[in-house]
Computed example of a mutant assay.
Amino acid sequence: MIKEDENGYVTFWVPLYKKTVHDAFYPYMNGEQKEISLTHIPSDFYENDKFNISKLIENYKNYVKRRGFKPFMERDKDGNYKSIKESALIYSFETFITAIVQELKGKIYREADTGLGKSDMIINIDNQEYLIETKVYSGVSRFEDGKQQLAYYAESLQLEKAIYLVYMAKRARKPETVKDDKEKINKIEITTHLIEYDETKW
Rank of each mutant, 00 (worst) to 15 (best):
D23G: 05
D120T: 09
E129D: 06
K55G: 00
A162T: 12
A24F: 11
R171P: 00
D44R: 00
I132L: 13
D198I: 04
E103L: 09
E129T: 04
S54W: 00
G8F: 10
K85V: 09
E183K: 15
S87V: 11
V14A: 03
T192G: 11
V64M: 10
Q102V: 03
T191G: 04
F12G: 00
I84C: 02
K18T: 01
K161H: 12
L150V: 15
L56W: 00
E183V: 14
E129K: 13
T98M: 04
D113H: 10
I122T: 04
T39R: 13
I123C: 02
Y46D: 00
F93V: 09
G8A: 08
T98G: 01
N124F: 00
P15C: 04
A88V: 09
K70S: 05
E144S: 10
Y167A: 08
A154V: 11
S37I: 12
I2A: 11
Y152D: 14
I122A: 02
K174M: 14
A169C: 03
V140I: 13
K118Q: 10
M29E: 14
G115W: 04
E129C: 04
I122N: 07
R173K: 15
V10F: 07
A151G: 09
Y28L: 13
A169N: 13
L56M: 14
L16R: 10
Q158D: 13
H40M: 02
F143Q: 05
Y60E: 06
K34P: 00
V10Q: 04
I188L: 14
K187V: 08
E58V: 01
K55H: 01
P27H: 03
T39K: 14
I57S: 04
E4N: 06
Q128C: 03
G31E: 13
N48D: 15
A151L: 10
L16K: 14
T191Y: 09
I132K: 01
M73K: 09
V140T: 04
S119E: 08
E183N: 12
A112E: 13
I2C: 02
K174G: 01
A154T: 12
Y137C: 07
E160C: 06
D181Q: 15
M168I: 15
L116F: 11
E111Y: 07
T114A: 12
E47K: 11
E4G: 01
G31H: 07
K184Q: 15
R75C: 03
R67C: 01
G146E: 09
T177V: 12
S43E: 15
M29C: 07
H193S: 15
K147A: 08
Y167M: 06
K184W: 10
F51K: 00
D126W: 02
